[in-house]
């Protein structure tokens, strides 16, 4: 092999080697040999989590750039994003740090926003939102687990206390001490259920006796009929009350007619006057009622009449009338 051939082969070897190195660096996104195409925007977060240079920037899931570098600016973690020049980011688009998978790296996720409301200019900053990361969620889950554990511990403690006050121990003691009674109760229950099954007793008949069922059905039907009648009666009563309310009929007139009420009022007043007079000892009726002398006089007069009648026993009717008249007047 002459010198020229050797040189050519070595040259080829170096070209291939360099090309492969270049391709590899290019393929790994943040290749140092890559040309700086597109424009940069910044996104500040309280924490960049696992985000690092070379991670994707995706808008609605479509890769539109990469994270160029990360830095701390004014107490905030800032990611410089290199966005493809053909992609415009809406001014109201929000950037979040999302996880590519449970074991995966993070990426910056952008929503579409409304490009009509303006776009982010090169060098501008994006609106960002911090979201809970897996560590935080796992931490919260851990706390939850602790709480559940302590709660279960308390329940367990109340159920099986060492001092003998546990729920299970109490239940155990209760069952042990009352086993005979419980056995009897269970035996009774068994007997009762057997009786019911064989159609004995009220319950048994209720469940298994066809006649009892028919009677029950008839009773129910009667109750239904009675309910229907009651409903009719109530309806009629309601119509009656409606009539009364509307002032129809005697009761209606009595309750709602003003003239009748006035008449009644006058009548009652008259009645009261009459009763007052009756109670008055000086009035005729009052005397009639309250004066004992009058009754005595009447009794005396009646006795005289009685005697006169006895004397008239043998005389004619005309004489009797004459005698009675003379006795009276």
């Amino acid at each position: 092999m002459n010198q020229n051939q050797m040189t050519a082969r070595v040259g080829l070897f170096f070209i291939i080697g360099l090309a492969l190195i270049w391709v590899t660096f290019e393929a790994l996104h943040n290749g140092r040999f890559s040309t700086k195409e597109g424009y940069t925007v910044t996104a500040a977060f309280s924490s960049l989590k696992e985000l690092k240079a070379g991670n994707d920037v995706r808008m609605a899931g479509v890769q539109i750039g990469t994270v160029e570098r990360t830095r701390l600016v004014d107490g905030r973690a800032e990611a410089v994003l290199r966005i493809r020049s053909d992609v415009q980011i809406a001014a109201d688009a929000t950037a979040t740090i999302a996880m590519a998978g449970l074991l995966g790296s993070n990426y910056v996720s952008l929503d579409l926003g409304h490009p009509a409301n303006g776009t982010v200019s090169p060098g501008g900053s994006l609106r960002t939102k911090d979201v809970a990361d897996l560590n935080q969620i796992i931490g919260d889950l851990g706390n939850l687990g602790q709480e559940i554990k302590s709660t279960l511990g308390q329940i367990s403690g109340s159920m099986s206390s060492d001092t003998g006050g546990g729920l299970f121990q109490k239940l155990d003691r209760l069952v042990t001490e009352n086993s005979a009674k419980i056995s009897t109760t269970v035996a009774n229950l068994e007997a009762v259920t057997n009786q019911i099954r064989s159609g004995e007793g009220t319950l048994g008949k209720l469940i298994y006796d066809q006649a009892a069922y028919d009677q029950l059905l008839a009773t129910v039907n009667e109750i239904k009929g009675a309910a229907t009648e009651a409903r009719t009666f109530i309806n009629e009563t309601q119509s009656l009350i409606a009539q009364v309310k509307s002032g129809q009929g005697t009761l209606g007139t009595l309750f709602y007619d003003e003239a009748t009420a006035d008449n009644l009022r006058v009548t009652v007043r008259n009645l009261r006057e009459v009763s007052d007079k009756l109670n008055d000892a000086n009035s005729t009726f009052g005397q009639l009622i309250t004066n004992d002398n009058l009754i005595k006089d009447v009794q005396g007069t009646l006795r005289k009449v009685d005697r006169a009648m006895d004397g008239l026993g043998d005389q004619g009717p005309i004489t009797a009338v004459g005698a009675a008249a003379s006795a009276l007047f």
Binding site: F13, F14, G17, I21
Partner: peptide
């Protein structure tokens, strides 16, 4: 020093 990175990169790929 010149060929080792090339050789390694070719091998890796």
């Amino acid at each position: 020093l010149l060929y080792m990175p090339m050789l390694t990169m070719i091998g890796v790929i």
